[in-house]
Design a binder for these strands. Structure first.
Length: 421
RNA sequence: GUGGGAUUAGCUCAGUUGGUUAGAGUGCCAGAUUGUGGCUCUGGAGGUCGUGGGUUCGAUUCCCAUAUCCCACCCCA
């Protein structure tokens, strides 16, 4: 019998970590709420075609990283490799175009990509994300960045840098692709295999190639940012101005080309130096063509996705202060079997009153019970025995102050309710 | 998909130049006055040495394969 282990690329998030997760989730939902974003929950799997059309057939994600399977009805399904495509599908399916514009949504999802494991890269991973539909101007681009900036600040995350770029619209990109192909043509035979195919299908992606052989040509290549059409140039300038107005620092990185096909114009990344080479904590951008591509009316949109594992790794690296996991406030030790029933009754009463309380479940000796209470790190202990039941008086022991105080059950309840807040 | 390192107790790791019952620390359980935790002492449970083959009288150790983890390339969050 072989041991069953968690599938490759997945991991358990144990109680020692979940406090940090809950904290990050809470802060994210809270900050999103302040910006007018409402939570959406979408299916874990979708029809495969959604991602092929939405994310793009030429992307690595779709070509080789999707968890695709056939369901019992013979339909091709895929575990979502990201969130945007599903949100756009939901936007159309639920007629959100008729909602007050802009429609602003946030999500907290797991996503799945069949990739080789590495630090900060899992096959099942978690993303926070936001999508805003219906606003074409650069103001919403900058607002979204300011949301992320505030979120990071509230978590105490420092030392992440914002990098921005524009990858234009279909018009300027078509022109640029011509220019790029002309430039690359003489060197085509020296480029790597993947770039050879990119040359025909999606030349822009060659810019993103890190193959040593391609590097020199890539660095000399004309940048898309320098070849924007007037509209895209104006949008990018407006984005920069809005960031400046909000006091947000950024660096322009002409090399940012997002790996998902739907992006247009604004693209941005928040990068950290600490999470190995998987330094991109958050990536996002504008996708003005996606809604139409999916069969809706042309609708501008912008969004980002944030890798929660990477975020938490970074917070740990920076030793950001996280809230302690909420422990048990009081342990009720029982002495003797008659008292044990009374201890259990009173424990339930305390819990009903909102106090975090525990009592013995293993019929252990008094000493063992208190040892256990010590390991739990409880603030108070109470021993209930025949005497206490008879007199109605208990000694509430403060484990930190090393002192105890005699009082009635009611007085103890009052004190514990206050102490548990 | 390519390359490097690792895998021995729940956890962190020793160790065996191939040889009887494989070790430590920590954690877990119990005991040291059947009414009081943290310190100390004592005892106990817990490992087919990742899995499958091969070489050998004998493999946890050597060889091969495979799985998983870590790291880099690549890609992305």
């Amino acid at each position: 019998m072989s041991k069953i282990s968690a599938p490759k690329g997945t991991r358990d998030i144990l109680p020692s970590e979940t406090a940090a997760w809950q904290y990050a989730e809470r802060v994210f939902a809270d900050v999103c709420g302040r910006f007018g974003y409402q939570e959406i929950r979408i299916p874990t799997f979708e029809q495969t075609e959604l991602f092929q059309r939405g994310v793009g057939d030429t992307t690595d994600v779709v070509q080789k990283e999707m968890y695709t399977f056939e369901d019992k009805g013979g339909r091709s399904m895929t575990l979502r490799p990201e969130g945007t495509a599903g949100v756009v599908r939901s936007y159309l399916e639920n007629g959100m175009a008729s909602w007050p514009s802009p429609v602003r949504l946030f999500y907290n999802i797991t996503a799945f990509r069949y990739e080789k494991m590495q630090k900060g890269r899992y096959r099942e991973f978690h993303q926070f994300g936001c999508e805003a539909f219906g606003s074409a101007g650069p103001v919403v681009d900058a607002e979204m960045v300011s949301l992320l900036d505030l979120f990071f600040r509230e978590l105490g995350l420092k030392e992440t840098s914002l990098r921005i770029n524009s990858i234009g619209c279909p018009t300027c990109r078509a022109e640029y692709n011509q220019k790029l192909k002309e430039y690359l043509k003489p060197h085509l035979d020296k480029l790597c295999d993947t770039c050879q195919t990119r040359y025909d299908k999606n030349p822009l992606r060659i810019i993103d190639c890190k193959e040593p052989g391609c590097r020199p040509y890539v660095q000399e290549a004309p940048a898309l940012l320098d070849n924007l059409c007037p509209d895209c140039q104006a949008h990018f300038n407006g984005f920069c101005n809005n960031l400046d107005e909000l006091g947000l620092k950024y660096t322009i990185d002409k090399g940012i080309v997002r790996g998902l096909d739907y992006y247009t114009r604004t693209v941005f990344e928040f990068v950290s130096e600490h999470v190995g080479t998987q330094g991109t904590i958050c990536g996002g951008g504008r996708y003005d063509g996606l809604v139409a591509e999916m069969g809706g009316q042309p609708t501008p949109g912008i969004g980002f996705a944030l890798g929660v594992e990477r975020l938490l790794m970074e917070l740990q690296q920076q030793q950001a202060t996280m809230p302690d996991p909420a422990g048990i406030t009081v342990y009720i030790a029982a002495l003797g079997s008659g008292a044990a029933a009374e201890a259990r009754r009173w424990t339930l009463r305390l819990r009903t009153l909102g106090v975090r309380a525990e009592t013995d479940l293993l019929q252990r000796s008094l000493k063992a019970q208190l040892k256990y209470a010590g390991k739990l790190g409880v603030r108070y202990t109470v021993v209930i025995g025949e005497d206490e039941i008879k007199t109605g008086k208990i000694k509430l022991k403060d484990m930190r102050q090393h002192c105890e105080q005699e009082m009635s059950f009611e007085q103890a309840e009052q004190l514990l309710i206050e102490g548990d807040e």
